[in-house]
Simulated assay, not measured.
Amino acid sequence: MQSSRRRRILVTLLWIAVAFVYLFPYTWMVMTAFRLPIDTLSMRFVFTPTLDGFREILVNANFLRYVGNSILTAVPTTLLVVAIAAPAAYALAHLDRRNRTFLGAVLIVRMVPGIAIVVPLYLVASGLGLLDQRPTLIFVYSAFNLPFAIWLLRGFLREVPVELREAAIIDGCSELQVFTKVVLPLVTGGLVATGVFVFIAAWNEFLFALALTQSRAATAPLAITGFRNEYGTQWGAIGAAALMISTPVVIFAVAMQRYLVRGLTMGAVKG
C-alpha cells in the first residue's frame, strides 16, 4: 500500500512539473500583459494589475485591424487547403495507392524552408503588383500548407475500409458520390484536425507576412514588432498583443477538441 501510494505521489509530482514547464511561458505572457514594464523587467510575480498594455494596442496602435487581417487570411487559407487536400488525399489513398513518386514530391515541397523561397516570392509578387494584399498571403499560405494537409488527410482516409467504397460503387454511386456521401462523413474528425493545424500555421505565420506585406495587409504577429522601437520595448503592449493573438487559437482548439481527439486517434484501436 505504501509503495503504491508513493508511486502515485511521484507520478502526480511529475505531471505537476511537466504542466509547470508547459504552462509557464503562457502564464508569463499573461502576467506581462497585465504588468507595468518595470514589473516585467524586475521579474515580479506579485504586482498591481494594469490595463495600460491593452489600452496601448487597442487605442493607440489600432491592433484590431491587424487581428482582422489575420482572421481574413487564416480562415480562407484553412478552408481552401482542406477543400483541395481532401479530394487529393482521397485519390492517393483509394484510387492510386502506389503513386509514391508524387507523395515523395509533395513531401519534398513541404520540407523546403520558407527562407529559401521568400526572396523569389517577393520578386514575383512585386513584379505583378501583388504586394501588401491579403489574397497574396492566402495563396502563399495555401501552397505552403497544402502538402502537409494532403499527407495528414491521406493517413485518415486510408483508415476507411475499402469495402465501403466498393459496396457504394456496386450500389450505383459515382466516385464523387462515394467521396462526398460515404467517405467524408467518416473522416470528419480528420478534416477538423487538419483544419486546426492549418489554421494555427496560417495564424502564427511571420516570415511571408514580413516579406509580402507592409501595412494594409499586415497580420497580427507582424504588428507586434512595432512595439519595439528606438524609444524602447513596450512590454505591456507586447504581452497584451500576444495574449490577443493566442486566445482565438486556444478557444478554437478547445471548441474543436472532441473532433480533434477523434481525428488524431482514428485507427488507433483495431477491432
Rank of each mutant, 00 (worst) to 15 (best):
L92G: 03
S126L: 12
N69P: 07
V59I: 10
P120K: 08
A241R: 00
V269C: 08
A240W: 05
L152G: 04
T188S: 14
Y122L: 10
F63E: 11
P135S: 13
V119R: 04
A93G: 09
N229L: 04
T40G: 02
N204T: 10
L41N: 05
L243Q: 10
D96S: 10
V109S: 04
E159L: 01
V109L: 09
F102V: 05
R110M: 10
S3A: 14
L153Q: 01
P37G: 08
V140F: 03
R44K: 08
W203N: 07
L243C: 15
F252D: 12
L186A: 08
P25G: 02
A253E: 09
R98P: 01
L176W: 15
N62S: 13
T194S: 14
V118L: 02
L58I: 09
R258T: 15
G53S: 07
T48V: 11
V46T: 07
N145R: 00
T194V: 11
L41T: 13
I138Q: 06
V67T: 15
S246R: 00
S174E: 13
L23A: 12
V254A: 15
V75Y: 08
S215A: 09
Y22K: 00
L95H: 10
P221N: 02
E159N: 03
G267L: 07
G271P: 06
V30I: 12
L264D: 13
V261L: 14
S70P: 11
P147D: 13
D171C: 06
T247K: 01
G226N: 07
F24K: 00
A253H: 01
G104I: 06
R134A: 10
V18N: 13
R262I: 03
F45R: 04
M244L: 15
F47V: 03
E166C: 00
A223K: 04
V106C: 01
A93I: 03
L222T: 09
F34R: 00
V11L: 11
R154Y: 01
P185Y: 03
R44S: 12
F199T: 06
E205K: 00
L58M: 11
A83N: 02
G232E: 12
